[in-house]
Structure formats: structure tokens, C-alpha cells
Design a protein around this nucleic acid. Structure first.
Lengths: 200, 200, 200, 200
DNA sequence: GCGTAATCGAGACGGTACGTCGGGTCTTTCT
DNA sequence: AGAAAGACCCGACGTACCGTCTCGATTACGC
């Protein structure tokens, strides 16, 4: 998965190359510090100190601390969720949901996601980047899965694919952000039930 | 010698009384500033200046700027949503949802809600207060409404009341926080459909 | 001697008073640090740390680090040089010069003076303040002394008072800044000789 | 005039030769920038950018930005002052002073001299270089001139040559650094008067 | 003419200090 | 005692330069 900060590699510019070592040290430090001190106490200064780099190096490559975190989350906790296509809608959906929830159950990942969503509210510019490079791909994946189900008539009538996607991500984010309830298998089954025609 | 007309007060402390004027000025300033500069640029200092009060007065009565905002939101935008009980589950639900969405469509209210939810992620202590005094009452109201429906067998089987509540608030919050889609009547109908047995 | 930063004391404003304790701690720290690390390594940050104050407190009361030093020099090393008026020109001049040189022989004072003169070259705004509140009073004092001598015809003809003053301060500053030679009694006598009619 | 940083030219080493083009571009840029932005805002980075060279090239050949300036001053504004020897002390002195003052009246030269003297106070290592390669030669020239006068008994008794030199350079530097007065012919005459036996 | 060696422009790097902002506290004066 | 005013210590912000370190691209000499 390409990171936000990747560079055009084709045109060889003069000057020293970007240090991959520093990049990784920064992402690791950000990820660790989030877990240790929380997002409120996560500072660029702290990341620089912990990673043994200069602040300028961070500012050079990431527009805000939330972007560092987004990058770290993508690099450290591989956020890839496969989009199954077995032909059976309930099975595909179940698989997708299960994989998503496994991710969301990891505490550091949950903390990261919550911080990103919070920052997206506070910094509109980051919000845009967050939506475009983080939320949208995952929305689209589930949307494609449900589109196939709709074609086979396995989605409840009166429920648009868009709203169905919103329902799924809605509950998941709501539990992450508001209630803190476990993202368990029971939830998976309930969602599969609600989103399958004749499934209840 | 106390006079006959002494105030009836539960705890008659000496000294100057809390200034209701200052309290209102602070809430108004907070509400206005949120709209004008955004939550990121909303500061205690700014609220004090705008409201013509001292910082100490704010710190004396609210633990954090998010609490000022929560207070302002409740005072400025009356957040009351009636919980109808007409005997018809779809009608009650539809009414509840419609009233909620009307509120969420007001831009200043939406901005306030997003800020509060963001702060709840960042400041755990405020998160607790936010859940207890803001989210819980609304959850309980919808929960009671859906409980009645369950008793009458109007809720889809295989869907717990708890998850149903999560579904509803999940979509609403998700649209507020993540997609920015309008909270329209179509969404109301889709939710009513999903949450009504045989309704689809 | 009133300091650069003195305030109108007559109108009693609300709010906390300026902390004399902090002021003194800052001046002391600046003076010590100059001696310890030199002017190049003298930083506002360092002064704040050493004095146990906040940077803002320094920025609030002094426009630049050189002004802190100028204030410290006036406070710590009392820079007062009496202007004698005994009626005898050579005696008066000798006394004035001797007192000045005693001051300039103190290493911390010399270091301070050199730093101030250097900064005056680099920061034109400070240069103005330095000239007005530091150099000018001393110039005027010697000027007055020599004026009296001129009236009594004890100054060499063909030498204006202005140039005579320049000659005196010129040598002294030149030795401080350029050669580092001791400001000794021999120099005093040579100057008295040059600036007294018939004295050589 | 050979630069301070010149290399042993006798042993022909392999590798690319020092670029005279870059050297000149750097000196020109330094000189221009001093006039345009002042010494405080004169940075190695700025000189590199303006001259179209790399920072390393500057650091390779000059120990500090003041040395670049000293070099530039010598290259751009030819600082040579002839030491006349006509046999007449007053005439020789007058000629030497006049030539010196003509130089000091040029604003860019004055700005350069002030910056160098300031830096000499702040950076002791540069101070040493400045004294040795800039101040000393000029002191020696005037010293030699006055030595000849002393032998002929044309110097006032009771005034050593060293102090006489200090008097001359003292006034000149004092006016440059402290008062900003013009270095005019009147000053020349007053100095000649003071430094000539029976001349007043 | 080919390798070795030094230079050059460019620019990223770890640092340090800058001057500012706001947080949360404390003090003073007034109500 | 509460409130406006405002100074205090503190810590992080984002920026500017420092002096150093790769890079790849030129030169130039010696073999």
C-alpha cells in the first residue's frame, strides 16, 4: 500500500536522498508514544526526541502529526482487509466484517483510529486527507461487495447500498468512539442478518 | 440579626453570588467562536476575551473548554428530542428519528457535536462526562422506545435492542463525522425499514 | 538611575504586579551567563532556565537580550562615574578618567560593554537605545567637564570639545574592543597631557 | 591581495581545482547582502542561495561568515592606505588620515567594518584573526609613520607612539561604531594638531 | 584514456534557539 | 467571596540556520 508521502521515483533529483531509517524511526516513535501517553500528549517534539530525529525532518514530510500517525498506522499495523468474493453474499460479508473487527480489537489500532477520527473533526484539512486516503478505500471495498449482493438480489429491498455501508461502518465507528463495546462475533452475525434479504 | 426576607438557599454561603450574566456571556462566546474559528482555534483565552470575563471565571466553573461547549450546546441549541409513545412502533421510531435529524441538520449543532465527540477521544476524562451526561440519556430514550417495540414483536428477530440502538446512532454519527452526508428523510425511512419486522 | 523598563507607578491598575524577584533573577542570570559562556552563547532560553523564569516574562519586559544585559550592567555593576568640579581642569579630568578606567578594568564589566557595543552594530534598533540611554549620558558628563575647562582656557586651542570627548572615549573603547590593552594610569596621564593646554 | 584562506600552491594535487568563479560569486553576494539586509540577517544560507553555490563550498574555504565578509571587504573595496614618507611629519600624517577617512566614508565599507568589529567581540576566534590580519597591519603602518616623527622630535613629549596610534584609531572607530559622525577634514586637522609638537 | 581524487550544486539530516501562543495558576484591585 | 485584569511558569508550536552528511555530476592530474 503506497503511503501518503511517497515521492515520484522516476525523476532523479540531486541532493541527499530521503532517509528511510529516519522515516521508520519516526513512524515507530509516533505509534509507541500514542500508546504510552495518549493522543493529547503526543507532540511533534516528543516524536522527534524519541525517534532521534530533528523536528524539521518531520515537518518536511508530513503536514501534521495526525498524518504521521495515519502513515504509522498503515505501516505498523497493516490495515489491509481482504475483500472476499466467494459467490455467497452472507459468507463474503461475514468474512469482511470478521477481518475488520479483528483489526479494530487491537488496542493500539483502536487508539489510532479514534485519534485520527478526532483530528479529522478538529483539523478540516486533515479531515479531507483522512477521508480521501483512509475512509474512502475501505468504503469502496465494502460498497463493491454489497453491489455484487444487490445484483444477486441478496440485499434487503428498500435499503440502498450506500446506506448499508453507512450502517456497517456506523456501528463499528460508533462502538469505537462512543461506547467502547467489544467488536465481537455476535455483532458480525447481527449485521449479516440485517443486511441479508430473508436472513432474519 | 437576619431579616424575615432572607433567601431560602440550600447552602447559604457568604460572598458574592455566581454571576449569571458572566455564565451566559461565556456560553454565547464559546458557541459563536466555534462557528467563527473552528474548534481547533477555540481557546479559553479567546472565550474569556470575547465574553469580557476573566479566565479564572471559566476555570472556576468548567473543567475544560469542551465542557463549556457541551453546556453551551445544551443552552443555546435546545437538544431535547421527545420520545413519542403512540402505540405504533414505526410511527414512534419515525418521529424520534425525524426530530433527531432536524437537530443534526443545523450546522452549528453539527459542528458542536463533532467537536464534542472529537474531544471525547482526546481527553478521556471528558469522554467519561460526555458519555454519561450526553450520549447515555439519548441512548436510553431510544432504547426504551425500541424495548416497547420488542415487547410487541415489531423488532426483527436476531437483532438485539442494544445493537439496534447502535445501528441508529452509528449511522447518524458516522454521517456527521465521516461522510458529511445530509441527514435526510430517506435515511429515516431506510432505518425504519431495517428496524421493523416485516417492514421491508 | 531609572531603568529602561520602568513603569508609571501612579495609576493603580488591577492585576498582578510585576515580580521584582523575577526581574532581579533575570538580570543576575544574564550577567552570570555572559561571564560563563560568552555573548555568542547567551540566549534568552538560557537566561530563562538559569533564572527559573519563563521566556515570556523576559520578552514582556525587554525588547532584546542586549537590553537585558544593558539593564543588568546598570543594576549589577553600578556604572556611575562622578563628574568632579574642583576648579582645576587637570585634576577634574584625571579624576573622571581614573574612575572610568577602574570600571572598565573589571572583566565582567568589560565583557558586558563589548557585547553591548557589538550588538549595537548588529541590531540598529538596539543601537539607537544604546546610544540614547547609555552612551549619551556619559558623553554629556565629560562634555560638561571639558566645557568648563574651555571657558577657563585650559583646553588646547584648535581642538573642539566634541572631538576631545571623542578622543577620550575613542581610546578607551578602542582598547576594549580592538587591542585589549589595560586601561592603566599611564593612559590617564597621557590623556590629561594631550587635553590640557600647555600640559605637554 | 592573497586571501586568508589561500592554499599551498606548490604541490599540485589531483582533483578538481577551486572554482574562482564561485569564490567571487560568494564574496559579491556577501557584500551585497550586507548592504541589503544588514549583518544580523546575513546568513551562510543566504549567501549560498544568492551566489548560486552550495553551503559546503563556503564552509570549505572560510571558517565563519565574518571571514567571508573580511575577504569580500578586501577584494571589493580595496582597503589599501599608502604610508607616505615625505620628511614632513604633519604632511605625512595628514595624508595618511585623509586617505583612511575617504575609505571610511564609503557607506558599504563603514557597514563592513562595523560588522567585523562587532563579530570580533562575539566570536573570540574570529577576533584573533581580525586583529592579526586586519587591525595589526594598519596599526603598524601608522606606528612606523609616527616613529619617524618621534625621531625628529615632532611628536608631543609625554605621549607614547602606542597611545598616539590608539588615539587616532580610537576616534575613527568610535565615530564609526558609536556616534556615526562624519569622518571629515576638520577631524583630520584636529588630530594633526593634537599629535604635532607645537602644532596647537 | 582511464582511474583516482577533489570540487561543485543540491538538498536532507540532527540540532538549537527563536519568538509566539495558550494552558492553568496566582495576585491585585474592585464590587 | 466573586470577578476582571493581568503577570507568572511552563511547554509546545512551526520556522530559521547551523554545520555536517550524502548524492550525482564535473573537472583535472598521473599513470
Amino acid at each position: 500500500m503506497p503511503t501518503v508521502t511517497e515521492q515520484r521515483a522516476d525523476l532523479p533529483r540531486p541532493g541527499r536522498k530521503r532517509s528511510e531509517e529516519s522515516r521508520l524511526a519516526i513512524l515507530t516513535a509516533a505509534f509507541q508514544l500514542l500508546a504510552e501517553v495518549g493522543y493529547a500528549a503526543l507532540t511533534i517534539e516528543g516524536i522527534a526526541t524519541r525517534s532521534g530525529t530533528g523536528k524539521q525532518t518531520i515537518y518536511r514530510w508530513w503536514p501534521a502529526k495526525a498524518d504521521v500517525l495515519m502513515d504509522a498506522l498503515a505501516t505498523k499495523a497493516d490495515l489491509y482487509v481482504p475483500v472476499p468474493d466467494t459467490g455467497s453474499h452472507p459468507a463474503d460479508l461475514r468474512e469482511f466484517l470478521r477481518a475488520s473487527m479483528v483489526l479494530g480489537r487491537r488496542p493500539e489500532v483502536a487508539a489510532g483510529l479514534r485519534a485520527l477520527m478526532a483530528e479529522a473533526q478538529i483539523d478540516p484539512a486533515f479531515g479531507e486527507r483522512f477521508r480521501a486516503s483512509f475512509l474512502r478505500p475501505r468504503r469502496d471495498a465494502l460498497g463493491a461487495l454489497l453491489d455484487r449482493a444487490r445484483l444477486r438480489g441478496e440485499l434487503p429491498p428498500g435499503l440502498s447500498v450506500g446506506t448499508a455501508v453507512d450502517l456497517v461502518f456506523g456501528v463499528v465507528w460508533y462502538r469505537l468512539l462512543a461506547t467502547g463495546q467489544e467488536l465481537d462475533d455476535l455483532l458480525v452475525e447481527e449485521l449479516v442478518g440485517v443486511l441479508t434479504y430473508g436472513g432474519n
